[in-house]
Design a protein around this nucleic acid. Sequence first.
DNA 1: TCCTACATGTAGCCAAGCTATCTATCGTGG
DNA 2: CCACGATAGATAGCTTGGCTACATGTAGGA
Lengths: 110, 110
Amino acid sequence: MMSEALRGHLDALILAVLETEPLHGYAVMEALQVSSGGALDLPTGSLYPALRRLDRAGLVESEWSTVGGRRRRTYQLTAAGRRALTNERTKWRDFSTMVEGVLRPGSAPA
Amino acid sequence: MMSEALRGHLDALILAVLETEPLHGYAVMEALQVSSGGALDLPTGSLYPALRRLDRAGLVESEWSTVGGRRRRTYQLTAAGRRALTNERTKWRDFSTMVEGVLRPGSAPA
DNA sequence: TCCTACATGTAGCCAAGCTATCTATCGTGG
DNA sequence: CCACGATAGATAGCTTGGCTACATGTAGGA
């Protein structure tokens, strides 16, 4: 849907929903759906690789558990993850300001 | 710099600077630098392929000329290009609203 | 029994922005 | 005179990361 646009911003979104509490993958998916007002319907083929990427980068850490017979891998932010989130928020603000400025109509010449 | 973040948004930015007047490639580059407040320093390896893409998509059309011994290819928006720009603006607004909503801190639970 | 929701994961595709490189003109400074 | 920076255009090939499609398995309801 907004596939191409998401590039480079997904990590920030995932970190953001993990900020308030640890969540397992599927719950991250649902949290993103809710907090995006239904706009973000992330396929599992995007979500799970992204989580592993964040894991490898040391921004989240995971722990396995079994709830109701189903295996869950629960992720929580590391200290580095929280720092990264702060940084991502700043980068987003800069980026969106930049786009807004260019997209705004009427830098009209003579 | 903001390389990955730009993905999927560059076309909109280019269409935007072409809205007020036709420009040749190099001038598009400069216009983007100015209207982004210096934040966007697009390499030619990004710009020229993007312009050709927009051309193939029928969103701009080009015309060759020679000014001061230098060959210029000047691009201007087509009707479809203007429609696309309007559409891109809407899509950007939706996208940024979505990201803003997810990134905003404090969807805190109990 | 079958379908849906829950839950996790991978292989391989593809688009698009980037680096590096190339060509060529013009003006300026050493 | 020559080197260099700004102007002007272009392409080959790399890389990245989100997506499609697929695979696996449990639980619960129709």
